[in-house]
Amino acid sequence: MRCTSPGDRPAGRAGRIPPAVVLLHRHGDPRVLREILAGLEEEGVPCRTEEAADGGARELAFAAAQVSSLGVGVGVDAMGNTCVHHAKLPRDAPAAAGPAGSARVMGHNAARLVVRIPFKRQEDSHA
């Protein structure tokens, strides 16, 4: 599960979508996005970022999970509220959600959802 290069990647190279968590955001605060991506990178899980026209964090996360080949999506609304969702979970029951301040932990947990290790809690982080 070694991390290759994170962040945006041209989808569909060689006709295949590389495995990645999908991050959908609505004019998300770049600092929030950076923290989420950092959390994912630290865990060694690739991520693809896309911008969405509208929707709340939960809807974005659910939509992102549906298109992610790993089945895991992250949604960020204009306020920086973050939600982590799994494609197999009911729409209204996300795996995790939190305010902008918890972005790093949300990134970690989106990655941990992929690699299947227990979630990190906000109080565990030293940040």
Binding site: E42, E43, H126, A127
Partner: peptide
Amino acid sequence: AHADDANLIAN
């Protein structure tokens, strides 16, 4: 390092 940052720095 102090924070959970090892891979971020190493990369």
